[in-house]
Amino acid sequence: MELAIPQTVAVTLGTLFTVLVFSHLIAFVLKKANPKKDYSELFQRINSWWVIIIIFAVAVVMERTAAIIFLGFVSFLALKEFFSLIPTRRADRRVLFWAYLSVPLQFYWVYDYWYGMFIIFIPVWIFLFLPLRMLVIGTTDGFLKAAGTIHWGLMITVFNLSHAAYFLSLPAIDNPQAGGVGLLLFLVILTQFNDVAQYVWGKSLGKTKIVPKSSPGKTWAGFLGGVVTTGAAAYFIAPYLTPLEGGMGAIGGAIIAVAGFIGDVTVSAIKRDLGVKDSSSFIPGHGGILDRVDSLTFSAPVFFHFIFYLYYGPTLAS
C-alpha cells in the first residue's frame, strides 16, 4: 500500500474537508438562529457528504486498486438501482445476472490497463451477448424493450462511470503534480461543484425554464451560471490537478458543466418516465446513488475523451 500521494492531491482533499467543516458550522449556526425550522434534512445531507467524501478520500489515497474497486462498487450500486426501478421480465433474471457480471469485468479491464477491451466491452461484446442470452430463454414478448432498457442501464451506470476509473490507468503524461488521481479528483469535484453552482444561480436569479418537461426546476440562468462559475473554478484548479494549461482548464471545466447538466436532466427524465422522485433512499438526504452520480454519468466519458484527445490521441499510432 502506498500512502504517498502527490502534495496537490493532499491539499485538494484537505480543502474538501475544510469546506465540509464550514458547511457543518454554518448549518449549526442556522439551526441556532431559527430553532423552530426543521433542518434535519440539511444535516442528513451534510452527514452523508461526510461519509461519501471520507470513503472517496480513503479510496483515492490508498492506492490505485482500492480506488478502482471503490468506483466499481459505486457502479454496481447504480446499476442495481436502475434494474430495481425499471420494469423487468421474470424471464430475464438470468440476463440481469450476466449484466451484473459485466461490472467486475469492466473494472478489471481498467485495472489491467487494457484500453482496447475497456472501450468496446459494453458497447460491443455485452451488446451482442445479452440478446443471445435472451434468445436462448426464448420469450419474445417485450424482447426489444427488455434488451434496450437493460443495455441502456449498463451504458449509463457501468460504461460511462468506468471512464472515471480509467483516469487511474492512463500512462503518465506531463502532469508532474498529480497524475491520474488528479484528473479523477478534478472531474468529480467540478461535477459536484457544478451541481451546487447551478442550484445557487438558478435559485437566485433563474426565470426561464430550460427543460420544463423533465426538470421544471432547472433554468437558463442556473445552467449558464453553472457553466461560467465551473469554468472559472476550473481555470484556477486545473494547474494543480491536471496537465491542462491556461484557458484549456476553463474549457475543461465548462465541458464538465455542460455534460454534467445533460446527465442530470437525462436521469430526471428517466425518473419522470418511471414515476419516481428519487432513485432510492440509499443515501440519507440525497436519495439514491443514481441521484448522486447522475451528472457524473455524462461528465466522466466526455471529460475523459477530451483529455484522451488532447494528450493520447487522436490516433492510436505510437
Binding site: K80, E81, S84, T88, R90, R93, R94, F97, Y100
Partner: peptide, 18 residues
C-alpha cells in the same frame, strides 16, 4: 417487495435488486 425477484421459489440463482 423485491425479494421474490431476487430469489423466487424454486430458483437457485440470486439476482440483486433493492
Amino acid at each position: 417487495h423485491g425479494l421474490g425477484k431476487s430469489l423466487p421459489k424454486g430458483e437457485g440463482l440470486f439476482v440483486p435488486f433493492f
